[in-house]
């Protein structure tokens, strides 16, 4: 029992949260979380993925004690994030989607400001700031104003500010949105180093390549968990055979294939179209004939393994066709 307790750093059960949203003159109830259960293990890199309004930000804010759930239980490091906030405040680092850096202060001054906020002991301040500058590769820019940093560097500085009190648990809400692929890679290398040092990381991301770097991922939708497991386990939940058609006319090919009722789904991926089907031998022949008849060219039709994004998109489409996604369930506008 005790070892199991120590193993779990975040435990949420049956969490529900409803917002009241204004629609014209009327008010409407929107459920951000519905009986949401999740456990994150100590030392894990845990990814939250899901469409806008899935409840990811609401969940993170509840964990940080910034929002109260309507019902359900939550424990972070074994404590209630609201009533026992003082016990865990020093152990949690939270980086919201729009982290407030002081644009007119330099990199170093921003870090110093956060040492004040978190009351880092005076004798440790300089060493800790130096370590974070080195760690985030921001050392050469320590005298630059935050406002003059590139997007990727701003996110690294925000992360460094979040780490100033050496938290055991990091909660990062889409930390790399708007960041270029090279800087994103560097940011995730830093997260990997933190995990090796024993920090538990809960991170939401719209990038599937980032989700694939997590130990476990929860796919969330409309306030619930739709799928949970390692990235491979989730990819393995793809319920059909997957075929990729590489073509220079992906839009036309996708439009043509959407008229074929034997296909379970047709998705565009830039230079190819992904199709979910059963009985590939027969169906691929039908696809070939159909495309040939219409005069669409393709370079190859390959059967492939579904990856995380294929499965994510497939499951989401099924749901959004079955249930119209709830309008207004947008946390940026309501959870403030």
């Amino acid at each position: 029992m005790t070892s199991q307790m120590a193993d779990v750093i975040i435990r949420a059960s049956a969490l529900s949260k409803t917002y009241s949203v204004k629609e014209g003159r009327a008010r409407k109830q929107v459920q951000a979380l519905r009986s949401f259960d999740l456990e994150v293990k100590t030392g894990e890199m845990f990814g939250l993925i899901g469409p806008d309004g899935a409840g990811k930000t609401t969940f993170m804010r509840i964990l940080c004690g910034l929002l109260l759930p309507d019902s359900g239980q939550v424990a972070v490091l074994g404590f209630d994030p609201v009533t026992q906030q003082h016990k865990i405040k020093q152990d949690i680092g939270y980086m919201p989607q729009r982290f407030s850096l002081y644009q007119d202060l330099t990199v170093e001054e921003n870090l110093n400001f956060f040492t004040d906020i978190f009351q880092v002991p005076r004798q440790e301040r300089s060493a800790r700031t130096q370590r974070l500058l080195e760690f985030s590769r921001l050392g050469p820019f320590s005298k630059r104003r935050a406002g003059a940093l590139s997007g990727g560097m701003k996110q690294k500085l925000a992360l460094s500010c979040t780490l100033i009190h050496t938290p055991k648990l990091l909660i990062l809400d889409e930390p790399t949105t708007g960041v270029d692929p090279v800087s994103r890679g560097e940011f995730w290398d830093i997260l990997g180093e933190l995990q090796q040092q024993g920090v538990t990381i809960l991170v939401s991301t719209p990038y599937m390549d980032e989700a694939a770097r997590c130990d476990r991922v929860a796919l969330t939708y409309a306030g619930q968990i739709l799928a949970l497991g390692t990235p491979d386990q989730i990819a393995g939940q793809f319920p059909h055979q997957l075929v990729r058609i590489f073509t220079r006319q992906p839009y036309d090919v996708a439009a043509a294939l959407r008229q074929l009722e034997i296909l379970h789904s047709v998705e565009l991926y830039g230079d190819h179209v992904t199709v979910a089907l059963d009985d590939p031998v027969t169906v691929v022949e039908i696809i070939r004939k159909n495309l040939d008849k219409r005069g669409y060219s393709y370079t190859s039709i390959d059967s492939g393994q579904a990856d995380l994004e294929d499965t994510f998109v497939y499951l989401m489409r099924q749901l959004s066709q079955a249930t119209q996604p709830e309008l207004g369930n947008d946390l940026d506008s309501h959870a403030k």
């Binding site: 993925i49 469409p51 806008d52 949105t177 708007g178 719209p206 839009y251 998109v313 489409r317 959004s320």
Partner: peptide, 24 residues
């Protein structure tokens, strides 16, 4: 200019189909 920042994969796909329609 970064029209799809922070948007989930399905929304991004729908957006690109719209964009392609405009281009066509």
């Amino acid at each position: 200019d970064e029209p799809t920042g922070g948007v989930d994969p399905i929304m991004r796909r729908n957006f690109w189909e719209t964009i392609h329609g405009l281009a066509a």
